Amino acid sequence: MNTVKQSAAATEWLARFDRVASVLPQARRGELRQELAEHWDALIAESTSEEELAAAVARLGDPADIVAAEGLPPVSPARSRAALGLLLLPLTGLLYLAPALPPGPPSVALVVLASLVVLAMVLRAEATAGTRALGVLGALAPLLAGLGGILDRVFQAGHLGTHEPAGPGRELQYVWASDSWVVGLGQPAMLLLGLGLPVLAGLRLRRPETPGDTRLFLGRLALLLTPAVGLAAALLLSGARLGTSVGTLLDGPLLVVALVCGAALLAAGGLLLVRPGIVLATKVLVAAAVVAAPVGVVLLAQHETRFAGVVQDAGAEPPPDAMRAQAVPDSVLAPAPAWVPADQGVRRGLGLLFVVALPLVATWRVGGRVR
């Protein structure tokens, strides 16, 4: 039989075994679990007290050690093909991500087809839950990042302008635009997601896996991805609100996608909060990073108001340089939620702290504080 007599210790131990044994071939995994279940039945039958059972469990050891003693299985052909597909996938992503005009329908169809084929290969390959999640992200990354790159070029092409009187026949002209820092960091973030994730997933699929903790891997992966995903999301959300017709059309869908991505990252990062072996101070830092990241995205998604020149009558004298250097009046500042700081530098600093610094520090602390 493959059932174990009622015991909380047995149930927990075998559940742990099931998680770490996913790297073994299915036939050997079932055979080994049958042997361990029978061994647990014998332990429970022979133990007359909880103390004796605890001592027997200690002698049995960690399930990860038992799985590791089986040796690492060779990488299956299906897994090797999936790894190769992921490593080659960024070549099609270059059609999206190159600084050129948006690609036409044939190029878009090629990228979509390649991503779907590689995604199917990843789903067919045997892998742990964490590795499979990384593979799925890698298969979809060039498609999503490339679409984001196209949208960013479309959004930034149209700025919403406003005017302020500057004397007889003259008006100062201003535009609302995405923060130059967010543009400068968000575009490389999309490039990193589109090209880096498939390579990372492909390299992980190419090598045999050692038994590990899925919660730990997914949590650290979420923290590591937060800076790139957060910067890209802030850039796209900011661009969608610049007043272009495309931005108005996609404002709602982009917000929904950003919320779904945020929820997934928060859930994966939250796995670290319930994992044993992480000290309390590190869990507090992880919780701060998980909660603060969405706030940081909102801060970075705000606009800045830039001076764009002077509207003047034909033949009039050009304005003095001092006019170009004057401060932007409050009357033309880009609107923002009431709780967002008015100063652009404060918004930028807090946003980068919440989206970039905190998740990376939390990742480092988790790596060094797991017992």
Rank of each mutant, 00 (worst) to 15 (best):
P73L: 07
L97V: 05
L350D: 11
T48D: 13
V183F: 10
G61Q: 07
V355G: 03
G270C: 13
L273R: 04
A58C: 03
V291E: 11
E171P: 05
P341I: 12
L360E: 05
E209R: 10
A27N: 09
A327Q: 09
V20G: 00
R369G: 14
T92Y: 03
L224T: 04
L218Q: 04
E209L: 14
R16P: 03
V108F: 01
D321L: 06
L36E: 00
P208V: 03
W176G: 00
S22F: 02
W13D: 13
L137V: 02
R59L: 03
G149P: 14
L221M: 05
R79L: 09
L242I: 01
A322Q: 15
G368L: 13
R275C: 06
R241K: 14
V310F: 02
A8C: 15
A56L: 11
L255G: 08
M190S: 06
P341W: 15
L254M: 10
L137C: 09
L285V: 07
V328W: 07
R29T: 07
T244S: 09
V23G: 03
G296L: 12
A45E: 04
L237G: 02
G61P: 02
D343K: 06
V298E: 12
L200G: 10
A327S: 06
G367F: 04
A233R: 04
L350N: 06
V298S: 07
R347G: 08
M1V: 01
V279Y: 09
Q302G: 13
A109T: 01
R132F: 15
P294Y: 05
P318M: 08
V183R: 07
G269C: 11
H39Q: 10
P90L: 04
A8G: 06
A288V: 14
V355N: 02
L140T: 04
F307Q: 12
G93M: 02
V311C: 11
L205S: 02
G104V: 00
E317W: 06
L89D: 01
G367L: 13
R371H: 12
P188G: 05
M121D: 11
D18V: 06
P73W: 13
E209W: 13
A267G: 10
G212I: 02
R132T: 11
L134I: 03
L350T: 05
S76F: 02
T131E: 14
P208S: 01
P77Y: 00
E46G: 06
A15Q: 06
T92V: 02
L299I: 01
D62Y: 03
G104E: 00
L223S: 08
A45K: 00
D65F: 00
G30M: 05
L116T: 04
T11S: 09
P168S: 14
L191N: 03
W13T: 12
S76D: 04
